[in-house]
């Protein structure tokens, strides 16, 4: 038997996708790197404030979204939705790959959250991540879109970022 790293469902040896959650199960041996889980302490629930500086709303062209990470900022444009996550063993990479910024160590799931542009609004959706998504200190319910304001603070697991956009 093998066990799904995501939902712990037991599957027959050789199975490639979890029948309970659809996760891809094939992994080269010895490289099992599931999303790190955190015990949710009260300290963790506090919003991690971002001291990073980056472009503000006024600096952005229409259609641009800026993600302000600690010490770095990423500009997104040209798509109607962006999956935020980290590298997994699947060949598929998320649109915004936080692996290089310590995403895995901070508990970011492979497909953690989704940003969607919907009629000049920006929506944030938690994709059922292992460690949750927080908006201005409040945890989101999985799969339920919430509307973002430019300047909002988001936390993916323990990964803090601030968002500015001009849509």
């Amino acid at each position: 038997m093998i066990q799904c790293p995501t939902c712990r469902q037991r599957e027959t040896e050789g199975e490639l996708f979890c029948s309970n959650c659809g996760a891809y199960l094939w992994q080269p041996p010895g490289e099992d790197k599931p999303t790190l889980g955190f015990i949710c302490t009260s300290k963790l629930r506090e919003t991690t404030h971002i001291t990073a500086s980056g472009p503000s709303t006024a600096d952005l062209k229409t259609g641009q979204i800026a993600l302000l990470l600690p010490g770095q900022s990423l500009i997104l444009e040209g798509k109607s939705q962006y999956v935020i996550g980290r590298e997994g063993l699947e060949n598929e990479l998320p649109d915004v790959n936080l692996s290089a910024y310590g995403g895995r160590e901070k508990g970011v799931s492979r497909k953690h959250a989704l940003l969607r542009v919907d009629r000049r609004q920006l929506l944030l959706i938690d994709l059922g991540s292992s460690n949750g998504t927080w908006l201005n200190g409040t945890q989101l319910t999985a799969n339920e879109p919430v509307r973002l304001e430019s300047g909002d603070e988001i936390r993916l697991g323990k990964f803090p970022l601030r968002i500015h956009f001009n849509l």
């Binding site: 490639l16 029948s19 659809g22 891809y24 080269p28 041996p29």
Partner: peptide, 23 residues
């Protein structure tokens, strides 16, 4: 079994969609 080669990509593509359907 030494580190086995990954399954063929075409099979993964087909199975990932099929497993959604099975869900």
């Amino acid at each position: 079994l030494e580190p086995p080669p990954p399954p063929p990509q075409v099979l993964i593509d087909a199975l990932s969609k099929y497993s959604q359907h099975k869900l």
